[in-house]
């Protein structure tokens, strides 16, 4: 089911507001809201790319072993 971009942006903004809201004026928060909406729009673009379960990420964790 597609995610509503506007709602997605609002949720992301609420997350930012919870953590950092005390640092900003209402006008500044509007600007942060705009940025959160841009992040949601970018995420939407990524979700449009078809990926299979076997399409792994670019970086793979490698176990570390120091000198013996």
């Amino acid at each position: 089911m597609p995610i509503d971009r506007q709602k997605d942006g609002e949720l992301r903004f609420e997350m930012l507001k919870l953590r950092f809201g005390h640092l900003f004026t209402p006008e500044q928060l509007d600007e942060i809201k705009e940025s959160a909406e841009q992040v949601a729009a970018t995420a939407e673009q990524l979700r449009k790319v078809k990926l299979g379960n076997d399409d792994g990420p670019g970086d793979i964790f490698q176990p570390y072993r120091g000198a013996d």
């Binding site: 930012l16 940025s35 992040v39 995420a43 990524l46 990926l51 990420p57």
Partner: peptide, 29 residues
């Protein structure tokens, strides 16, 4: 001036967004 707020917008990226981006990145590469 605008970076004083933009720097905080980075925390709106979700772990699932990042991992999806890394998966798409591999296909693109």
């Amino acid at each position: 001036e605008s970076s004083r707020r933009r720097i905080y917008s980075r925390y709106a990226v979700l772990a699932s967004d990042y991992i999806r981006a890394m998966r798409v990145r591999r296909k693109m590469s």
